[in-house]
Amino acid sequence: MSLMQRISTFLRSPRGQQLVDRGRRELAKPENQQRLKQFATRLSSRRR
């Protein structure tokens, strides 16, 4: 099995679905959205 196939299989499993749902809940929180924006800003400024 290739790595992509294993990841895909995991994401369809019950445990994978739990992790996906948890990730979506965490991303919906305003404080986490702000952290991601700050991280993206830092990354984009490094590339210049």
Rank of each mutant, 00 (worst) to 15 (best):
1 M>R: 06
1 M>H: 10
1 M>F: 14
2 S>Q: 03
2 S>V: 02
4 M>I: 14
4 M>A: 15
5 Q>E: 09
5 Q>W: 02
6 R>V: 03
6 R>I: 06
9 T>R: 14
9 T>I: 08
9 T>M: 12
12 R>L: 08
12 R>I: 00
12 R>H: 11
12 R>T: 02
13 S>W: 07
14 P>C: 01
14 P>G: 01
15 R>H: 12
15 R>C: 06
15 R>Y: 10
16 G>Y: 00
19 L>R: 07
21 D>I: 03
21 D>Y: 03
22 R>G: 05
23 G>Q: 00
24 R>Q: 06
24 R>P: 01
25 R>E: 05
27 L>C: 03
27 L>Q: 08
28 A>G: 04
29 K>L: 12
29 K>C: 04
29 K>D: 04
30 P>R: 04
31 E>Y: 05
32 N>K: 06
33 Q>N: 01
33 Q>G: 00
33 Q>R: 03
34 Q>W: 06
35 R>M: 10
35 R>V: 08
36 L>Y: 06
36 L>I: 10
37 K>W: 11
37 K>S: 15
38 Q>I: 05
39 F>M: 15
39 F>R: 10
39 F>S: 11
40 A>S: 11
41 T>C: 06
43 L>V: 15
43 L>I: 13
43 L>N: 05
43 L>M: 15
44 S>A: 15
44 S>V: 10
45 S>Q: 13
45 S>L: 09
45 S>T: 10
47 R>K: 13
47 R>M: 14
48 R>K: 11
48 R>G: 12
48 R>A: 14
